[in-house]
Design a protein around this nucleic acid. Structure first.
Length: 206
DNA sequence: GGAGCGATGTCCT
DNA sequence: GGACATCGCTCCG
């Protein structure tokens, strides 16, 4: 696993219903240029959020300055700040004017692990699973903030934050209810790589 | 290993 | 003023 050939996912990949995009994102690579370092991780857990029909979605209340990216063109980063402590990363889906997105919930760290530990401010000998398993954790590990990244084009490698395909075969998937929400709790829009030990919690932990 | 809870900023009503 | 797509710590088992 030296330097796999990475190809950016095209705009059309995201120009679909999030419930289709989510499953297809599993196994793909999130890549961040951090100074001279390249941080990479395999996507192992995501959730889909829709528009007006999804009360748990930020977009359900209509377009506001905060959630505007979700209403914009597909393939862009929607980064929000939550609970006074944490950032979370999404990618916008569906065409310009139609809201929807995918929340990144867990990654399997691949490259730049030392740098991720620094950004997370946790000891380098702590469990690797604590590094990027959880939306707030992975954002911190990748140095993602709203100020720096909200609205960035995730198709363009030059933006410093993008999503790529390294040619790995599609993994086996489990679908569950979403985590940490209070509305629409029954909607089965969480997609995880079956058996992967880096998912944030639940069924795939063994 | 799981329930409970405080920390804390930003947005919207 | 309240809600919030979280995390890490305590306390209890």
């Amino acid at each position: 696993m030296k330097s796999p050939k990475l190809s950016s996912l095209p705009r059309a990949f995201y120009d679909r219903d999030p419930r289709l995009v989510g499953p297809d994102l599993l196994g793909k690579i999130l890549a961040r240029r951090q100074g001279r370092k390249l941080l990479t991780g395999r996507i192992v857990e995501v959730e889909a959020y829709l528009g007006a029909d999804d009360p748990a979605a930020h977009a359900s209340i209509g377009r506001t300055p905060r959630n505007a990216v979700l209403f914009g063109p597909p393939g862009h980063a929607y980064v929000y700040f939550i609970y006074g402590n944490h950032y979370c990363l999404n990618v916008s889906c569906l065409p310009d004017g139609v809201p929807g997105g995918i929340l990144f919930r867990a990654l399997e760290p691949i490259g730049g692990i030392e740098e991720m530990f620094k950004l997370r401010r946790i000891a380098e000998d702590s469990d690797l699973r604590r590094l990027t398993s959880g939306p707030g954790r992975l954002a911190a590990a990748f140095g993602i903030t709203r100020e720096r990244d909200n609205g960035k084009d995730l198709i363009d490698p030059r933006s410093g934050l993008h999503i790529a395909d390294d040619g790995a075969p599609p993994p086996r998937m489990l679908i569950t209810k979403r985590i940490g929400i209070k509305k629409a709790v029954e909607m089965p829009f969480r997609y995880v790589v079956a058996g992967n030990r880096f998912v944030s919690r639940g069924e795939a932990l063994r």
